[in-house]
């Protein structure tokens, strides 16, 4: 752990330094007259570049302060709280992730068991991912909105659409990972397809599943945010981004982005822990 800490800190520090430096030219359009009026000099340049009230690029400590103000300094269940907005987005992320995960697994199981499905279904699965999500999200949301489903499912459908794909690809590979000998073994027992799936293919595919889920959960969050954009949602991380860009409030955008990134990292971390625990119970070499 200690050995890992140094490189991580070094990279983090380098990013922060570059960020602070970038603030100077990025905000120049706003700050140049103010710096000149204050008499110029390095101290004034830094002071104005890093503390502009409505900056083009906010400095790290401004973003940190904005996060503090909107996460810790307000009541959590109000419209001003990022926690509230994060929860709105996260709940549809999770619904979409679970639906997408299940859909991905079901598709993979069908593809592995039916040779014709691989040829007939796989092209559609791949084609679905070549369409830019920004193009299809408004249509999906309008169409699903007419069905009278609860809003959360409408939003979650975008996450589902994005995150079934890595699961399908990973699980097809995982379900096919048992070697010929293990498959022959099941044949000598006259095991039926369900038994082979349950006792051989599914356990063997678990490492592949976790790898796919980690990719999926992160893009499920992206999907949920994208789904909030065309609906003109009033709550959620996407709504914060939209709102921030309407009013030129970059601080709000950056704070929302960081909180979303943190949430994604936490979900990936949770999945890694779950993976470790389940592989340990399956007798993996420590």
């Amino acid at each position: 752990m200690k050995r890992n800490l140094l490189p991580i800190l070094t990279v983090t520090l380098a990013i922060i330094v570059m960020w602070y430096l970038a603030c100077i030219p990025m905000n120049a359009v706003l700050t140049t007259p103010k710096i000149a009026a204050a008499g110029g000099g390095l101290a004034n340049t830094l002071a104005y570049s890093w503390n502009e009230v409505r900056p083009v690029l906010p400095s790290p400590h401004q973003v940190a302060r904005e996060i503090w103000n909107t996460v810790f300094a307000v009541a959590p269940w109000t419209i001003k709280s990022l926690v509230y907005h994060l929860w709105i987005t996260l709940s549809s992320t999770l619904v979409g992730f679970i639906m997408g995960g299940l859909l991905g697994i079901l598709l993979a199981i069908s593809i592995v068991h039916t040779a014709s499905l691989e040829k007939s279904l796989m092209p559609w699965v791949i084609a679905s991912q070549t369409i830019p999500i920004l193009a299809i999200a408004p249509m999906l949301i309008v169409v699903l909105g007419k069905t009278g489903l609860p809003d959360i499912f409408t939003k979650a459908s975008i996450s589902t659409y994005l995150c079934f794909f890595p699961v399908t690809i990973g699980m097809v590979k995982g379900l096919r990972s048992p070697d010929v000998m293990q498959q022959d073994l099941m044949r000598t027992y006259n095991a039926n397809a369900a038994q082979t799936l349950w006792k051989l293919r599914l356990p063997a595919s678990l490492p592949f599943l976790f790898a796919s889920l980690k990719v999926s959960v992160a893009i499920a969050l992206t999907g949920a945010i994208v789904a909030e954009l065309p609906t003109g949602a009033v709550a959620g991380i996407g709504a914060r981004l939209l709102n921030g860009s309407y009013y030129g409030n970059t601080l709000q955008i950056w704070a929302a982005l960081f909180v979303a990134a943190f949430a994604a990292a936490m979900m990936v971390w949770l999945l890694s822990e779950l993976e470790k625990q389940s592989l340990k119970r399956m007798g993996a070499k420590p």
Binding site: M181, D184, L185, T188, A204, L206, M282, A284
Partner: peptide, 15 residues
């Protein structure tokens, strides 16, 4: 299920 088969490799399920 008339026979038991032993393969060239143990082919045990690692989990």
């Amino acid at each position: 299920r008339a026979y038991g088969y032993v393969f060239q490799a143990p082919a045990l399920l690692p989990w």
